[in-house]
Amino acid sequence: MRLLLLMFAFCLTLPAHAELRYTLQPRQIADDVWLLEGSTDNFDKANGGNIVNTGFIVTAAGVVVIDSGPSRRYGEAMRAAIASVTDRPVIKLLLTHHHPDHVLGNQAFADVPIAALAGTTELLREQGNAMAENMYRLVGDWMRGTEVVLPSETLAPGTLEIGGRSLRLLALRGHTGADLAILDERSGVLFAGDILFYQRALTTPNSPGLDVWLEDLDTLEALPWKRLVAGHGPVADDAAPFVQMRDYLGWLDGLLRDAASGGADMNEVIQSPIPERFAGISLTRYELIRSVSHLYPRYEAMALQRVDE
């Protein structure tokens, strides 16, 4: 009987051996500016972690890539996708921040400089392996062979002149403490990294505070952008992503503040109603549960006083 059950279990596992292949379709969003748009879902064995927007800009000197995706396999698929639209070589990879869905494709770009803010490199050094392990748990075999590769160049805020193109680099903090946004001055395309989420609930694992994040939104919105590429979610040509982000961050901040001043426990806060106006945003409940874990202790500390004697 036991043997038969084993055989039966083996049959059940067979479909998992199907080939894992990312279908990355580069979409031109401005002259020489390309986007690889991921879904707004969560990490899953069905999507291989392709829930992220990456991009690249074709300059006279070669291709500048923005983020490398969630796995080695994604990075390799990205190289192939780039080669399908241009013969120019990849000359540089820019990382917006250290989160796994943006940097774990780095191995596929080990032949070019990988550049990031100093804080991003530091965070990736501290947290990279643990994040990669968790990605194996979440998306499984898609991650096979993936290892953390640290950046080889440090970026400072300012203008990066490359291949006749001016890329304005902004060092922000709201999402992880070290967040790079990139404005391509010629096209007006703003790669906002995860300072912008659009139609997808924002994530807060390393956020220094929602107030910091709100200030970053002001900084970004004041730039001369024409087209917005959020780290997650669809491209926009108007300020809708900024409006949604401010609304959502304001709601989250108020919810946590009110809960703490009312003496709520974490398990009560994660069950809070989510306003109807956010119904179109994916993963709000899931991210509320995570954000309560990340942020609620700070709000609690503000609502409690020293009582020891």
Partner: peptide, 11 residues
């Protein structure tokens, strides 16, 4: 060590 922060909330 042993510092306590706390509060009392009406329920």
């Amino acid at each position: 060590l042993g510092e306590v922060i706390g509060g009392r909330f009406a329920r």
